[in-house]
Write a protein that binds this DNA or RNA. Sequence first.
DNA 1: TAGTGGTCTAGACCACCCA
DNA 2: GGGTGGTCTAGACCACTAC
Lengths: 244, 244
Amino acid sequence: MNRNKYLTIYQTITREILEGKYPYQSILPSENKLVEMYDVSRETVRKALSLLQSNGYIQKLKGKGSVVIFNEANHFPVSQLISFKEIQESLNLHYETIVERFEVVSAKDFPHVQQALKLGDYEKLWKVVRCRVENGKTAIVDIDYFIQSLMPALSEEVAQQSIYEYIEDRLGLTISFSNKAITFEPFDDDDFDYFGETNPPYAAVVRSVVHLDDTRPFQYNVSKHRANEFKFVDFSRRISAQDE
Amino acid sequence: MNRNKYLTIYQTITREILEGKYPYQSILPSENKLVEMYDVSRETVRKALSLLQSNGYIQKLKGKGSVVIFNEANHFPVSQLISFKEIQESLNLHYETIVERFEVVSAKDFPHVQQALKLGDYEKLWKVVRCRVENGKTAIVDIDYFIQSLMPALSEEVAQQSIYEYIEDRLGLTISFSNKAITFEPFDDDDFDYFGETNPPYAAVVRSVVHLDDTRPFQYNVSKHRANEFKFVDFSRRISAQDE
DNA sequence: TAGTGGTCTAGACCACCCA
DNA sequence: GGGTGGTCTAGACCACTAC
């Protein structure tokens, strides 16, 4: 049970939108109605609604109401910070995860990672390579680096399941934000090993540095996809620069 | 001048962060300090700070303060909804815009566009193709479709300058949100014409449907980049699914 | 213990939309 | 004019951090 009223309202309404109770372009109950329905103050309702708006579920129209703009065809939970297991479950996909490598490496051997995670030369990292396989075909290769001292008990079994679940539920840490970069790169030797011969031999590569809620970076992720099967979907808002 | 106090505070603080007054990992004045500094209520300060947080400038830490997490190296204004002219100005880049085509077409001849913009068969569209050229080399090709009835007076001169400026300043419309999809695709014949021979002959393609603040879609944009020179940078937050 | 951010309230006034 | 969302306030209580 959430103690937070506004989060409860947010979660209830997202669920209702996803279930079709409020279809595309319909109008949510007015703020005052929601105040009565949930027995909270108007600012609390508004907090829930602004979350819905900034996450692309609704658009609020002055004088009219909150219009549902969520559209299954357009939205796809990729631009959010979400674990592979969660994506899979939310889309009812059935990939198999194969842990190809699970080992300890030195930060200084991976300068990009070391710099992104702000580590000293002698810090140790878990390096985990996982293939996401569907019908015997590798769809995604995830290469992850985690700071060992933060999670000394990480194991291959956990990597097989969900590392995010482990971090949040077992370690009690809160994953908060990330910077991502998407690029297009030719296959390297490892890619041929993991994906097999493919035409074209190009990968769409998503690199991200993921941070905890105290701003510490804890994960460096490189996620490789077959370039011709890759699609990244994003929702963005224009920063209101309005005067008047 | 903004009437909005919280927007003024947000804009002031972003400017100060960009100017280096509050460097990476420094701590902003506390909410109570900001209340005094701007002579507003605490909720107003908090509204400005949550905007800063959701746009990736700061992370708020309970009991400590607001830490600046904006880092020039990581951030890049691509994931926001922003016009090419604005990007150019904010980065001090100097591309030349060449209007390759400026014509009227029928919605029914472009079914994807027609569907995305929810148009009838006989609606007319402005189709605009523009190359963004730097040192004689085409860096980006923008293919845009605008609903003609919304902006009957659009002209080649406007396309040469900034269509967004025209829409917002001249027509008084407010551009609000968009759905984007990024894919990697082999060059088609037009791409060879615009980019010339390039190795590899792949384009990073960003397709977006842009909406006004009353939720009407008004623009379908296809933005093509040389795949090997393309980098999309994004900031994302994990939806707090916390209980307790 | 003092200071910080997180949540919530009740109420005010405004601008906008529509019948 | 009645309903809708937008902004702002003053104040309350809580949880967390740091010393």
